[in-house]
């Protein structure tokens, strides 16, 4: 009996909210990526959709490839907040062309990118290392752990696409002849561990990483300027291919990473107001780093960080949502 009353009153409350605001957006499944910034973005979206637009939000947590496959093949989740589109450009473009998926927000994060980075300690102690050429000239500053006479470049774990690109660029910059060796990190955990260890002890570190990430934010890793041109054709047909298939790699900057908010077309039609919000929201790199660091320092989940964000950054998010939604979110606080 008690439950029924509760249900009825809940229903009343929710219909009441619709009456004043938007058309009901119904059920939404948000694709939550299984890394820190992906979690955070999905949870901010979820909070805003459930409080501001009264959606019935569910989360589906997975990595990039399963999310894309599920979105193109199964039509769920409805929206992926932070999707690294390079991983499956062909599949996404095909679905976009068929008008099933839409790149609702082409750049939800500013300053997203990948490439070779140096630790904050190295950047601070050696401001003269401005470009990759300056760094390559000084292998003594980044000694290889097993052969200190050489410089060490931390490569991606084997199996990741970036491993091939790093290995080919290593050849393109002729680093072996200049006294460098690649360090195989073995796994994502190994790569992260090497960064955490070096940064905690203020040691120099050089290797592949990407931003925005907890580690890049927390340890303030600096992206190295590659001081080179970019040729898409050469990148696609040589740099990202196995070493045997890329005979003469040429120096190149890292490809631009396309990070998008990808949504089902029928979802944008079902909930146009929510779609407007997704189009408008952009996380600036510093802001995102602030919350990633918050998550790392407090071992907080994306959900907790999103709550913190909604509580503290009203000036930012209120610009993304409609007035009614902003009022509803404020009320929920």
């Amino acid at each position: 009996m008690k439950k029924q009353i509760l249900a009825v009153s809940l229903l009343a409350a929710s219909t009441g909210a619709f009456a004043g605001g938007h058309a009901p957006c119904g059920d939404v499944v948000i694709g939550e990526m299984n890394w820190a910034s992906g979690e955070f973005l999905a949870r901010v979206d979820g909070l805003i959709m459930s409080e501001g637009y009264k959606c019935n939000v569910e989360y589906l947590t997975a990595g990039t490839m399963p999310q894309i496959t599920s979105m193109t093949e199964k039509g769920t989740p409805d929206i992926a907040s932070e999707l690294w589109a390079n991983a499956a450009a062909v599949a996404i473009d095909a679905a976009v062309a068929e008008n099933r998926l839409v790149k609702l927000n082409p750049a939800p994060i500013t300053g997203a990118g990948e490439g070779w980075m140096v630790s904050a300690a190295a950047a601070k102690a050696h401001p003269e290392l401005k470009t990759i050429d300056d760094i390559i000239a000084r292998p003594d500053l980044f000694p290889h752990p097993e052969d200190p006479s050489k410089g060490g470049l931390h490569n991606c774990p084997s199996g990741w696409g970036c491993q091939l690109a790093t290995a080919n660029l290593f050849r393109a910059f002729d680093m072996e002849a200049k006294g460098w060796k690649l360090i195989d990190t073995g796994s994502g955990a190994g790569l992260d561990g090497s960064i955490a260890k070096a940064s905690e002890r203020n040691e120099n570190w050089l290797g592949y990483y990407w931003a925005p990430t907890t580690l890049a934010g927390k340890y303030d890793l600096k992206l190295v300027d590659f001081n080179s041109g970019f040729d898409q054709d050469h990148w696609d047909n040589c740099i990202v291919k196995p070493v045997e298939e890329c005979d003469s790699p040429k120096r190149s900057t890292w490809t631009v990473s396309e990070v998008v908010s990808l949504a089902q077309v029928d979802f944008t039609e079902r909930a146009p107001a929510v779609a407007e919000y997704v189009k408008a929201r952009t996380f600036d790199a510093d802001l995102l780093n602030k919350y990633l660091t918050y998550m790392a320092d407090n071992q907080a989940s994306g959900e907790e960080a999103a709550e913190e964000f909604i509580l503290n950054e009203e000036a930012t998010w209120s610009k993304w949502v409609s007035e009614d939604a902003a009022a509803a979110i404020k009320k929920a606080l």
């Binding site: 084997s158 199996g159 073995g186 796994s187 090497s194």
Partner: peptide, 16 residues
């Protein structure tokens, strides 16, 4: 997984 060279590395690569 923490960067020891040897037969384990191609296995990891094969898995991913």
């Amino acid at each position: 997984m923490i960067g020891v060279t040897g037969l384990g590395q191609p296995v990891l690569k094969a898995i991913s």
